[in-house]
Amino acid sequence: MNLTLKIWRQKDAKDIGGFETHEVREVNPDMSFLEMLDVVNEGLILRGIEPIAFDSDCREGICGACSLVINGTAHGGHKATTACQLHMRKFSDGETITVEPWRARAFPMVKDLVCDRSAFDRIIQAGGFVSVSTGGVPDANAIPVAKEDSDQAMDAAQCIGCGACVAACKNASAMLFVAAKVSHLALMPQGKVERERRALNMVAQMDTEGFGACSVTGSCEAVCPKEIRLDFIARLNREYGRALLHRGGG
């Protein structure tokens, strides 16, 4: 199949950037979207043009590195699919495809389709952990966890930190990301000990990074490749409210 790519190019953080059009011939439908970009890039390199920069690593939908807005939708809009797992058979011959980076103030641009998502790391550093050091922990079976809680915690813990939720949200809100970690840990007895501190600190960091607020539109849930549900945001809100009730302002 043949395709037209309308793709965002930006030399570095300071550059204004703009769209570039590439005609791609004889695309194999079994290619992944990123493999298609690999082929385009090889062509560019042979012509002495710098290839299109984009993040990717595991290419099996778990590392969360890939971050492309394809035709206006984060990861291309197929259920539970990251861009690296999106295959060209989902597109039709002759189609024009736009490819853009994640857009959010809290994810500053680096180059082309690469942005800086270290804000997520800083949110985790602010409280997305259980404060236990190595050693001196009880036997694993000394802490029973209801299967239902453990399963729900796993639903939340699956987050791959790709940032599609932020990219899709009209407010560039990181609530789904923060909610996933807060919920995961709040659902486990191990994480309950410092749940109030965690909720307050992570929310504060989220605000500091410049993410927007949640307007409950549900876009984040719709694009999340791990299908993390909106009810975790309700849980985060609940955890936050709980923290205000139990700890006041911290």
Binding site: N71, G72, R103
Partner: peptide, 14 residues
């Protein structure tokens, strides 16, 4: 928080 909009298909998801 979202200074730049997407030009691709503007239909907001969900």
């Amino acid at each position: 928080a979202r200074p730049v909009q997407y030009i691709g298909d503007p239909n907001p998801v969900a």
